[in-house]
Design a protein around this nucleic acid. Sequence first.
DNA 1: CGCATATTCAACCTTTTGGTTGATCTTTGC
DNA 2: GCAAAGATCAACCAAAAGGTTGAATATGCG
Lengths: 111, 111
Amino acid sequence: MSNDLDTVFAALADPTRRTILAMLLEDDMAVTDVAEPFEMSLAAISKHLVILTRAGLISQEKRGRVKWCKLEPDALRAASVWMQGFGQFEPVNLDAFERFLEVELPATDET
Amino acid sequence: MSNDLDTVFAALADPTRRTILAMLLEDDMAVTDVAEPFEMSLAAISKHLVILTRAGLISQEKRGRVKWCKLEPDALRAASVWMQGFGQFEPVNLDAFERFLEVELPATDET
DNA sequence: CGCATATTCAACCTTTTGGTTGATCTTTGC
DNA sequence: GCAAAGATCAACCAAAAGGTTGAATATGCG
């Protein structure tokens, strides 16, 4: 009954998780590094990563003792199509998206 | 801190609410009529409509004793832009959307 | 007026969510 | 071998989500 739109939208509903996705947009990251900018325990971030993984929004691969997180943007496709069914939204307004990133990304940027 | 993407994505995470939105795509509806196809109390649907209203996804206008619900697809714009920032998804694949509607809409169709 | 209709409110219940802490497990480096 | 690092597990907790039922509030109609 509940398709995966449930899982994807629920995953996106949390600001911490959206921030993580935005961080992974730049590059793959280890779990510890993902957790670093947040004022929250590593265990909490680990749980968020599980939720993102279950939603298919990221994948995790263990190399050595480090688990790498990788963005899987294709998982957004179905949800994006669903939303666009309600209106033709201007395709990829990068300016608007940059603004979101400014708000959502922690100030960890290195130029 | 939490912008309105929180509210919009959270609202979309529930299948009942997504179905309601799809129903309203066809036409404005009274609360009682929205509730009709669901096996759920009117009060429960009323709560769902509050959540959709708070997210800006619908508006409600009372005329007489009837409260009409109207889809407000513009509220999806910000969320749609955010998602598209992660990838160029093919714009409005209507076929795919129709398939979603088939799954999500209750069998209330006439014709 | 007085009853039926349309919708919400209020109280309650159960399950889920998002977080904590401390223990555990695996891998690495000396 | 053993301590440190990377990550998860387990138990717990408070708050939010999603539902119920019954009472309350408007509004419309004969």
